[in-house]
Design a protein around this nucleic acid. Structure first.
Length: 414
RNA sequence: GGGUCACUGGCAGAGUGGUCGAUUGCACCGGUCUUGAAAACCGGCGAGGGUUAUACCUCCCAAGGUUCAAAUCCUUGGUGGCCCGCCA
């Protein structure tokens, strides 16, 4: 969450930054008022509590000295009722503030371009040239069915739409990709983790999926656990509530998990094929850094994902997301979009974000430096979405007869 | 799933109703000594809020309760150890 003190001290500037991210000005004012109410409520409660503590100390002293405590008791009892009311007021104020601030997105970096939606994103560069074909390239679902790699119908039979079954060479390729990506990331200094795919509410609040995006998550009701929408959640929250030695940063992690998303609100889009599934596989990068390190690590992570695509021989481009397309917790994001000849367009395959201290403030991830505890910066990025990488391989490496060439980099994994 | 015991600062571990946010050891940081290090000695050292800085408030797994007063007593929940049962 954002630093409410910043809003208090630097209202105009902070409000302007939030409005770039489409936060309504009324919400910003509410937030400021709620914070002031809380401060006043706290002051009132703490002043009386201090007095009450002092009286209690006296009480003990009187008892020891054998003095009468009758008068004290009357005063103390009277305060007690007031104290309870003040405490209630403070709690209400806290809840009010919390309810607002937990739904306020991160402040975008100053150099993030303004914009409405993905059309206003800015291309940074292209990597590799899209292949040319002597025939009309097919879309991935056609190739997948022809090669027997993906069985869409049986996926629906087992679960529902947006689930699929990967078979034979497709399944082996999927496994090879996961191993290839993990090894690649490890060579770049990211330590490998295998983490729970069911997490509790606290973890999801830490990374920002809750409370605002509950509708996007699959929940196991009777256990109060949620299926993770991305490994970013467990990996980042590994350090929830911890104070890390500053010298140990940056911590760079990678992990493979399945990811589960309800895709509420994506209605009708990408229903065909494997672009948008309720369950998909992803290898993730997550870093925890000192405040002064996050920009450099961000570039490392973008490079890691981009190089991975390049080594696979997949043409792609890097784009800087504009304010309107930026996710809830991100201060800045670079998307990697892979070329899909069948669709004749670039499609998102990875998204690397710096959340700065937004998640760290929620999850209480701090580091100690020169005796002080400082909120860490957290970053996450996909490296890569496995299903979409398979799609990209199918479409870019398809032959005229519909067969698919396997990228050299993967051969030793098959 | 049943029983039982436990949960205190980075770790270990005191404290069982009152000046306790907490003895002590280790770790850590600074200093003296040393060519340098180690050892020894001296000092510092939990977290959040608040303040220019102090005061002051909160936190001893969590939430309630008893009490003028709770780390300490009670209730519920969570987690962990051990025993029993069950199961890959």
């Amino acid at each position: 969450m954002i630093d409410v003190k910043l809003l208090q001290k630097n209202f105009d500037e902070t409000a302007a930054a939030l409005m770039r991210k489409k936060v309504d000005v009324s919400v910003i004012n509410e937030l400021k008022n709620a914070n002031e109410t809380l401060k006043n409520a706290k002051l009132a409660y703490e002043t009386l509590q201090a007095k009450q503590n002092e009286l209690s100390r006296l009480f003990g002293q009187y008892k020891k000295e054998g003095k009468s405590t009758d008068e004290l008791k009357i005063e103390v009892d009277a305060n007690k009722a007031t104290l309870n009311d003040l405490l209630d007021a403070q709690r209400t104020a806290e809840e009010t503030l919390d309810a607002i601030i937990m739904r306020v997105p991160n402040i975008p970096d100053a150099d993030v371009p303004d914009g409405e939606d993905e059309n206003d994103n800015i291309e940074i560069r292209k990597v590799l040239t899209p292949p040319t074909f002597t025939f009309t390239p097919k879309e991935h679902w056609e190739l997948a069915e022809q090669n027997g790699w993906i069985d869409f119908e049986r996926g629906v039979k087992l679960s529902k739409s947006r689930f699929s079954v990967v078979a034979g060479m497709g399944a082996r390729l999927e496994r090879a990709l996961i191993n290839f990506m993990l090894d690649f990331n490890r060579a770049r200094g990211f330590e490998e983790f295998s983490v729970p795919m069911l997490v509790n509410r606290r973890a999801l609040e830490g990374t920002g999926q809750l409370p605002k995006f509950e509708d996007d998550l699959f929940k196991v009701e009777e256990e109060e656990l949620y299926l993770i929408p991305t490994a970013e959640v467990p990996l980042t929250n590994l350090f929830q509530d911890e104070i890390i030695n500053g010298a140990d940063l940056p911590i760079k992690m990678t992990g493979y998990t399945s990811c589960f998303r309800k895709e509420a609100g994506s209605g009708g889009r990408d229903v065909r094929g494997m672009i948008r599934q309720h369950q998909f596989h992803k290898v993730e990068l997550v870093s925890i850094t000192r405040a002064d390190q996050s920009d450099a690590v961000f570039e490392e992570m973008v490079a890691c994902a981009s190089d991975l695509l390049a080594v696979l021989g997949l043409p792609h481009r890097l784009v800087t997301l504009c304010t309107g397309d930026l996710g809830f917790g991100a201060a800045r994001t670079v998307d990697l979009e892979v070329w899909l000849p069948g669709q004749n367009t670039y499609r998102e395959i990875s998204s690397v974000s710096n959340t700065r201290d937004f998640q760290a403030r929620r999850a209480k991830i701090r580091y100690k430096e020169e005796g002080k505890n400082i909120l860490a910066h957290t970053l996450n990025g996909s490296s890569l979405a496995v299903g979409r990488t398979m799609i990209a391989i199918m479409e870019n490496f398809q032959q005229e007869d519909g067969s698919i060439r396997i990228p050299d980099a993967l051969k030793k994994y098959l």
